[in-house]
Design a protein around this nucleic acid. Structure first.
Lengths: 336, 336
DNA sequence: TTGTATGCGTTATCAT
DNA sequence: ATGATAACGCATACAA
């Protein structure tokens, strides 16, 4: 089956290419009759626009790049999926780039996306050791950041869940259900959201007159390490009064739960536990996991709207948008 | 910062555009000296290839489309992520399209991808009510199918896990750990993989001299339905001797586990349970979930290799490639 | 070894 | 209301 071009359509409908183009894009002026004729030929031939040509001519690619650290992580895949859906409805295609939290891959992707001439960029992150370095890009592509503090705040829009609020409320939930010594379990990846969550935790302690102490309230773990279980157990041995854990995310919380379940104190009877992200797995664990739920739909919608706005008005920049979160309470924080 | 074209590079390095092109693509002939000079100018200017122009000229887009039913499903996102990674290393970018199991969206995506001129297509599915209708596409784009039987097998390559083997082994695992009346839990989405898994289940019964009966060995459920729990309970009431469930996938298995846990017979003591897909959640449930693990790395690699081969040799088609699966045994099938 | 010229499919400018 | 044509950036056939 042949591939038709606008020129073929022009010949077949007895008009010029210019007219066909006008009809297709519904601008300029043309008679109702030609419109119908052209449209019918397009229908019959199954003509499809060649976007490479269109992009070349218009210097616009109708595609958006997304940089995401790890798309097999539920939170990321959820928000990416929603972004992609919204963008598609608006006529954009999405190039999803999995950077695997790797600086070099990120740079390589950035070059590729620039070459492809993406009209905009969405940068997602929750835990990067390095900052997003936009200066790698020569051409000024509009971009927005989700959960990732950009180097040059003034050149972008920053969208984030209210990590502080989520952490604060999660911690208070622990306290209100009876915890005297709440712990925050963190990993070693520093990021804006990590810091915010730590701040929320600390402020919740302060508000409830509990002193924060690095040794007795802060648990540093690495779930990928073979020492994870030993580290956790030894921390609990050093802190026998620990009775509540706010975990930086559900992955950590669930791993902690696994260890607690087979080893020591039962949850929630002796230790209460709450996570962050509302992973599906939290519904199936035993006990089921309380958590902080991010509003991925709103994040996705805000991201797309902000980016498209930025594409139209490149100077409309420098904003920060904070999306509220909500608690999802399950068994792991039930009071006695 | 200006956007350089090949013409600018030509002027800056004192050669013609043709020479620059040759150097960039490392074909044709040129002196070592010009090569160095051109490359240095490219380096200095930060020149990036314009892929729209290249695509237009070469009638090749260096991008691949992936049609996936639901990227927030772990199995899909896992294999998509791996495909994307391999493709990127080979110089292709990937356009991931989430069809949401929706025929219209799929068609719309197909048109968009054709317009973008993707060089190839990967169609993934595990549960579709409709078959992939390639005739929607005018131009003959090479495509391969994962877990989805295409209408015209002779025009594509079909890649699939060995669902039959997985189901057979899972069922035998139930029987070997003592189950006398194994059940298969299915949903109402018909697909190749569903059928294969059902066949594997039936054949395992047959081999072990257990007669298959629609009423006592087949449980039809819909986890999205509000009647799910009631249906399950009533089935178990009608079949008090049911002592093992092979679930079409882990999602169903985990939902069943939830009901079993709060209601009736404990797992694995009275009922053993095994799923399919090896979702992360299966590690955290209580009891932890036995399952059939698909080899997503191999699927991804095979898919990419097959597709790229098909792009080079469009007639090298009609093959079926079956990837072995393996059992991941956890608590939910432990013998008494 | 290198340069010149053409065309890919589209939009936009300027005619008519 | 419609047509002719230049231009977008690149690869390549052909010339030199």
């Amino acid at each position: 089956m042949k591939k038709y071009s606008i020129k073929d359509i022009a010949e077949l409908s007895g008009v010029s290419v210019a007219t066909v183009s006008r009809v297709i894009n519904d601008n300029g002026r043309f008679s109702e009759e030609t419109r119908k004729r052209v449209l019918r030929v397009i229908e019959e031939t199954g003509y499809k626009m060649n976007y490479s040509a269109k992009s070349l001519r218009m210097n616009k690619s109708f595609s958006i790049g997304i940089l995401v650290p790890d798309i097999s992580n539920y939170f990321f895949s959820d928000v990416v999926q929603k972004i992609e859906e919204i963008l598609f409805d608006k006529g954009y295609s999405t190039i999803i780039c999995n950077t695997a939290r790797n600086q070099e891959k990120e740079t390589a992707y950035l070059h590729m996306l620039e070459g492809k001439g993406v009209d905009g960029l969405i940068v997602i992150s929750g835990a990067e050791a390095f900052e997003f370095d936009y200066s790698q890009i020569e051409k000024q592509i509009p971009y927005i950041c989700i959960d990732r503090e950009p180097k040059e705040k003034s050149r972008t829009i920053f969208i984030s869940s209210n990590h502080y609020q989520g952490a604060f409320e999660a911690t208070e939930q622990l306290i209100h259900s009876g915890c005297k010594q709440p712990i925050i379990a963190v990993h070693n990846r520093k990021s804006t959201s990590t810091k915010e969550r730590l701040n929320g935790f600390k402020d919740a302690l302060k508000k409830n007159n509990i002193a924060f102490n690095e040794n007795s309230n802060l648990l540093n773990v690495d779930i990928r390490s073979s020492l994870f279980e030993a580290d956790l157990i030894s921390f609990l041995a050093r802190n026998p009064a620990a009775d509540g854990i706010f975990s930086l995310n559900d992955s950590i919380a669930l791993e902690i739960l696994l260890v607690l379940r087979k080893n020591i104190r039962s949850v929630p009877k002796y230790i209460k536990l709450i996570g962050f992200d509302d992973m599906p797995a939290g519904r199936y664990s035993s006990p089921t996991l309380s958590t902080v739920k991010q509003d991925t739909s709103k994040i996705a919608l805000t991201a797309v709207e902000s980016l498209l706005n930025l594409i139209s008005f490149p100077s409309d920049t420098g904003k920060s948008i904070i999306i509220p979160v909500s608690l999802t309470l399950r068994e792991s924080t039930q009071g006695n």
